[in-house]
Design a protein around this nucleic acid. Structure first.
Length: 567
DNA sequence: AGTTTCATATGG
DNA sequence: CTCGCCATATGAAACT
């Protein structure tokens, strides 16, 4: 019989212990012991491609990838635990296997281990069976099997189990993709990056001395303000210098400075831009994060409450446009870059079943249609109105614009307003697939008491100010988290499909994922097939997540040599 | 000296 | 009185 699911734990000596499971998680037969983890997984994957049940994908899978073994599907017990805890309103409790096992057996719940650092070498201890706080003698494979089985039962017991199963599968697939992306890395030309820095900043100086261009600018800024010396990166100094020149600044933010008519302003703006690149994406960034022609950040699936990914170093999700010129495909290869346009309003249309809004997104530019239907052709206002509805903005003319939207799209607007009301009254909201927002936290952890908070006398209701903030959060959560549901489904479909394209050994590789954008590195001749696959995956993600919906999720797809040319 | 918060930038 | 969501990362400033 074909193994549907297989639980796997590594042994300290590089081996593995496996147990075949039925779909519901019940073990079939006893534990198998293998001397070689990589071989055991590789053989079974090729033969039966089961869903691998693992405690933590990001810890185990990189070892398999390093040895050339990929797997198709998994169930990540830790990620599933976090989703289940969140669903139950127990957000923030330890979610690791030892903690889940302790809850199952009624033992004291140990805290989660802190995440390992990036250049941490696995030790016998890490790979081993005992974990701090766990009674030794508990077999990790037994723990894994039992916790997984219990998770399957908990998943079946909640509302909309079909969607929640999808969520766990998508979250797990995301973890596989994250490990694979960390393994592949984004093609990155250090020489191009360095040349770009030199062009912008002047040649690199020794000992972290600021590059010449920054020094020159700061001298000219000082001179323009009648000073001898000035650190333009110190907001306090800049404010003081302007004060001496008779200009009072509330802050030194770019948009504040832009309103000021003074010769130092353009210099200062230029300085800020260059300084930012120098400190955040300069030579030291290059040295820390780019090796062997690849940028390898550390992705953290499920790292953001809304289900978006985070990174633990490298800042992969904030790569400035200016340095994207260094992301260049290998010779003979290209980058297929695809991003979902206007994803959040489209997701709102699907969530709320607002078919009129769905229709408005049918023509490609949703804001354009909105503008023509509601705002007398004013696209800018249409966009502000929609974003105000999604974020809860009330200042300026935002309320008026949202009210206008509501007249034409009552279901969509009511959906987010309802989420806001639930949040304001202290309730929980969920994404379409069931990812749940964290509960309202107890205010004033330390320091100054919140002026908006009158008393801490065990009153669970929120103060008006906090309640409104909470409402904006839950309002946005339902949309942002459901958009993340969709994006994960896209990613999962895409990564599976890619294994069928290209020649073995020269497969397209997923190298980047950023909220609503994916990047595939592939041979030029495979690009058309990849483009078609990405587009199919987007459409299929819409159906998988939202079922039968008229909402379209169009992608902007570009096949380029260089990331900077994608948009 | 080490740690935390603030200000400002980047991304979606 | 103010009122736009989610993040990461850096250096300066403030704090222990």
């Amino acid at each position: 019989m074909v193994a549907v699911r297989v639980a796997v734990v590594p042994t300290p000596a590089g081996g593995a212990r496996l147990r075949v499971l039925a779909e519901d998680g019940r073990p079939i037969g006893g534990a198998q012991v293998h001397a070689d983890l990589v071989e055991a997984v590789g053989v079974l994957e090729r033969a039966e491609a089961p869903r691998w049940v693992m405690a933590n994908t990001m810890e185990l899978y990189p070892r398999l990838l390093a040895a050339g073994v990929t797997v198709t599907r998994c169930h990540d017990v830790e990620l599933a635990e976090a989703l289940l805890l969140g669903y139950a309103g127990r957000w923030g409790e330890p979610r690791g296997l030892p903690a889940a096992w302790a809850r199952l057996t009624g033992a004291p719940v140990p805290p989660d281990r802190p995440p390992r650092s990036r250049d941490h070498q696995p030790t016998l201890f890490d790979a081993g069976q005992s974990t701090p706080g766990t009674p030794s003698g508990d077999d990790p494979l037994d723990m894994l099997v039992a916790v997984h089985q219990a998770q399957r039962e908990r998943m079946d017991a909640i509302d909309r189990p079909d969607r929640f199963h999808l969520l766990v599968a998508a979250e797990s697939a995301g973890a596989l993709a994250a490990a694979e992306m960390g393994h592949a890395g984004m093609p990155w030309r250090a020489d191009v990056h360095s040349a770009l820095l030199t062009e912008l900043l002047g040649p690199r100086q020794a000992h972290g001395l600021p590059p010449r261009r920054l020094g020159e600018l700061s001298e000219r800024i000082a001179a323009a303000l009648g000073d001898h010396r000035l650190h333009p990166d110190s907001p306090a100094e800049v404010v003081r210098a302007f004060a001496r020149a008779g200009i009072r600044l509330p802050s030194t933010r770019s948009w504040v400075l832009k309103e000021i008519d003074h010769p130092a302003v353009p210099l200062l703006l230029e300085y800020k831009e260059l300084y930012r690149i120098y400190t955040a994406h300069g030579w030291s960034w290059l040295a820390s994060w780019v090796r062997d022609g690849r940028f390898r950040p550390e992705y953290v699936p499920g790292g953001v409450v809304s289900g978006r990914w985070a990174t633990r170093g490298g800042g992969a999700l904030q790569i400035p446009k200016a340095v994207r010129r260094a992301a260049i495909a290998d010779p003979g290869w290209v980058l297929v870059v695809a991003d979902a346009g206007q994803l959040e309003p489209r997701v709102l249309a699907a969530l709320s079943g607002d078919d009129r809004l769905a229709l408005a997104g049918g023509g490609g530019d949703l804001y354009r249609t909105l503008a023509d239907e509601v705002f007398g052709g004013d696209r800018k206002r249409a966009k502000i109105g929609m974003l105000a509805a999604l974020y809860g903005q009330t200042s300026g003319e935002a309320s008026t614009l949202v009210a206008a939207l509501r007249r034409q799209f009552p279901r969509a607007v009511e959906y987010v307003e309802r989420a806001a009301r639930i949040g304001e009254s202290g309730g929980l909201v969920r994404s379409w697939l069931g990812r749940t927002c964290p509960p309202a936290t107890a205010p004033a952890v330390s320091g100054e008491p919140d002026p908006d908070e009158d008393g801490e006398s065990g009153d669970l209701s929120l103060s008006p100010g906090r309640a409104r903030a909470r409402g904006r959060f839950t309002r946005n959560f339902v949309v942002q988290a459901s958009a993340a549901d969709w994006a994960l489904a896209l990613l999962a479909t895409l990564r599976t499909g890619l294994t069928g394209i290209g020649a073995p050994g020269d497969r397209p590789e997923l190298v980047f994922f950023q909220h609503d954008e994916v990047m595939v590195h592939c041979r030029s001749e495979d690009a058309p097939e990849v483009v078609a696959l990405v587009e199919r995956s987007a459409a299929s993600a819409g159906r998988i997540v939202f079922g039968d919906t008229p909402v379209r999720f169009p992608l902007d797809v570009a096949t380029v040599d260089c990331y900077a040319d994608a948009k």
